[in-house]
């Protein structure tokens, strides 16, 4: 398991869990479809992290990217 922020760009992985105590962030991420079990692709990391989840694309900052954990199977 590893943080999304250290995933290689272009690799598809699966969200393992959301590790944050910020309830608002969890709710927002879930609303955007970032949930455990979902496959996620990191498209780029600068100037912001851009992820693709299903057909949804989202931009998150470094702190948020650090609290999304993926299985790490792609590496």
């Amino acid at each position: 398991m590893m943080a999304l922020s250290s995933l290689k760009t272009g690799k598809i992985d699966t969200v393992a869990c959301l590790k944050t105590s910020d309830d608002a962030m969890i709710r927002k991420l879930m609303a955007m479809g970032v949930l455990p079990g979902v496959s996620i692709t990191l498209e780029q990391r600068f100037p912001s992290y851009i992820v693709k989840v299903g057909r949804t694309r989202a931009a998150v900052d470094r702190e948020t990217a650090k609290s999304i954990y993926v299985d790490g199977a792609a590496n």
Partner: peptide
């Protein structure tokens, strides 16, 4: 608290 950033990017 510092503001976090997460935003959906529409096509």
């Amino acid at each position: 608290k510092k503001a976090g950033f997460y935003m959906e990017i529409p096509p």
